[in-house]
């Protein structure tokens, strides 16, 4: 019973991720208008660090990594971290001794990541080349 309870979380999460992946594969966000626009972008006209991420997911699912880089650099660069975290979580579901994701508990790493996000946010809103490369297109 305890085993089922422990496994239910990654299974529910896995099904959700699969469902979202199928959605963004079959309805390509780069060419569809059914997906909602970023509310921050809608209100301010500025780009947020997440703008272009829906299109980037569709691009990745279609194997177009270069286009994904162009749509949201931060997403593609964060992907290894997210995959790593997901793998550790999945492994932990089967282990009694839990693995710790030590990199996320390093004060330096978090500060660097925060700085990167804010820098990305500011730079992609500068309408001058080469910063325009950071804006989704």
């Amino acid at each position: 019973m305890d085993k089922i309870k422990l496994l239910s979380r990654p299974i529910i999460l896995g099904i959700t991720v699969l469902f979202i992946a199928l959605l963004y594969f079959f309805i390509d966000a780069r060419y569809s208008t059914i997906f909602p626009r970023c509310p921050f972008n809608l209100v301010t006209g500025l780009l947020c660090p997440g703008c272009g991420s829906q299109r980037a997911i569709s691009a990745i699912l279609h194997g177009d990594f270069l286009h994904a880089l162009r749509l949201n650099l931060l997403l593609v660069l964060s992907l290894p971290l997210i995959v790593y975290s997901a793998l550790v979580h999945t492994l932990n579901a089967f282990r009694t001794i839990q693995l710790r994701q030590t990199i996320f508990y390093s004060p330096l790493f978090v500060k660097l990541f925060l700085a990167a996000v804010i820098l990305f946010w500011v730079l992609r809103n500068i309408p001058v080349y080469p910063f325009t490369l950071l804006a989704p297109a």
Binding site: C38, P39, F40, N41, C48, P49, G50, C51, S53, N72, L74, L75, S78, L81, I82, S85, Q101, F104, V110, F113, L114, V117, I118
Partner: peptide, 17 residues
């Protein structure tokens, strides 16, 4: 942290930050 990163990238809101 990971949840916040996901929220920042996918939720388009300053709350993730």
């Amino acid at each position: 942290l990971v949840e916040s990163i996901l929220a920042t990238i996918f939720c388009c809101l300053p709350f993730g930050i």
